[in-house]
Each structure stands twice: as C-alpha cells, then as structure tokens.
Design a binder for these strands. Structure first.
Lengths: 132, 132
DNA sequence: TCTTGCCTTGACGTCCGCGTCAAGGCTTAC
DNA sequence: GTAAGCCTTGACGCGGACGTCAAGGCAAGA
C-alpha cells in the first residue's frame, strides 16, 4: 500500500506520515519507483501512534509503544518501557488536572466577587421577584 | 520609571514589556531621549496582565481587564466585558478538565490492563507474601 | 499523446509569548 | 576620555506537529 492509502485508512494525512518518517518513528520501504510502501503492520503501528497522540502524548512518548509492537509483542504496551511512559503520563495528568482545578476555583471566586460588586446586575438569581 | 525598573518591579523582563507594547496592550510614553516612561498606574495594569497570564489567559483575553482599569475602574474585572471573559474561561476550563479526567481514566485503565497481562510483574501489590 | 492523479523532495508558514543576539545611542561615574 | 550600564530598534530562534506551496517524476486510462 502507498502513502495516500495508508493515510486515508488511518484517518490522517500524507504529510503526517512523512513527518513521522523524518522523526524515525515510522520508516517506509521503497518501491522501484521511489514510492513509499507500507503493509498492514505499519497500519497497526500508525494507529497506535494516533491513539496515543489523541490522548495528548508527545510524539517521542509514543516511540516505546511503536518499538514494542515492532519487536513482535501483541500490544504496544506489552513492554516495560511503555508502562513507564503510562505512569509518567498519569502523574503529569494528575498534576495538570490539579493545577487547572485550582485555577478554575480562583477564577470562579473572582467572578463571584466581581458580580457581587457590580451595581444592578443584569441577571438576578433567585430573589427580587424574578420569574423563573 | 523606565522599562527596566518596571520590569523588575513586576517580576518580568523588558522584552516582555516591549512585546506587550507591540500588541498595543501596554503603550508607553516617551522621554526626550526616546526612552519609555511608565508610572504607577502602568505597574497596576502590568500586574493585572501577569496575574491573568499566570491563570493561563491568552494575552488578548487580558485586554478587557486592562481597558477596564484604564477607564478608571477600581478593578480590572469591574466591567461586563471582563466578566464575559471570566465566564468563557470557566467554560473552557470545565471542558478541558473534563477531557483530561477522561483521558486520565483511560490511561489508568490501559496501565492496569497491561500490568495484569505482564508475566511475573516486578511489584506484587499485597499478596504473595510481600513484606509490607 | 495527453490528461489526471498519484507520488517525490525541499522549504517556508503557522501559532504564542517571549529569549537572545546584534549594532548602536544616551547617561553617569570615575 | 572612557568604561559601565542603561536604553533603542530589528530580526532571527524556539518548541510541536504538522499545513501548504513549488517544481517535477511516474503510472494509467482515453
């Protein structure tokens, strides 16, 4: 299969595949005319990359998963190096979610304070005879 | 006050101030020698910008707050346009936190599954006669 | 043969908030 | 006079994952 077909089957673009190849992540064989040639295994690797990317993994973080599959393991996360990435990602996510939650609380507090300070607010909440 | 002093007092850099000026966010008067000149009000504007930036607001999103202060209001969020930004940011944060939480759960599930599938895991959890 | 549609490499553009360097001017202290 | 330390503008760099355009080659159908 050529690059266009692989891209289409993985729901991505040829540019993306060439980029992955330039990063050494998804090298391609070449046909006699210089065209890149891929097989079903490459599709599987690509799908692994895309899944992790959708999760917010950096491209480099997908490398252990790809190498794991290429080494013949049934899943990309069948190798210790992949589990390390999983755990690190979990820690990063926990930190990030915590920070965002903190910021959210502070922004909400600021909004509440600012609304309370506003004279004659446009949206009375429950009193003042509001209808619904 | 010149640019270096303002930057120092706000805990930022001269490059940052020039960047804000280039964006029209924090224009400066000029002295006879061409040097930028700032006053205490500018410091207040700058601190408002920095606070919001620390919260993850885009520079453009800080503009209503700055204009509000410049219009003479006591706080940057004393104006409706600022409250609109607050509310939009809250919605964005909620969406983002929700997405990240979802991803976190999926990654955790993958990790659990992969660990369970691993033969002779390195860290037995509670059984198998582990010490503590 | 010509057109269409795929493929190739190379290289610059995007977004954002600056960092960093270059070349030079002003001011002050010694 | 001159060195230090501030200031000026201009312009390129960075990180990440590509988008997009240019110029050209290869393959297949009418």
């Amino acid at each position: 299969m050529r690059i266009g077909e692989l891209a289409a089957r993985a729901g991505t673009t040829t540019r993306t595949l060439r980029y992955y190849e330039s990063r050494g992540l998804l090298p391609a064989r070449r046909g006699g005319n210089g065209y890149r040639t891929y097989d079903e295994d490459d599709l599987k690797l690509l799908r692994q990359i895309r899944t992790l990317q959708d999760f917010g993994f950096d491209l480099e973080e997908t490398r252990p998963f790809v190498e794991c599959l290429r080494a013949g393991h049934p899943e990309g996360d069948s190798c210790p190096a992949s589990l390390v990435v999983y755990r690190r990602k979990l820690a990063e996510l926990d930190t990030l979610i915590e920070q965002l939650t903190s910021v959210r609380a502070q922004v909400a507090a600021q909004l509440t304070r600012a609304e309370a300070a506003a004279p004659g607010g446009p949206e009375p909440k429950c009193e003042l005879g509001g209808h619904g």
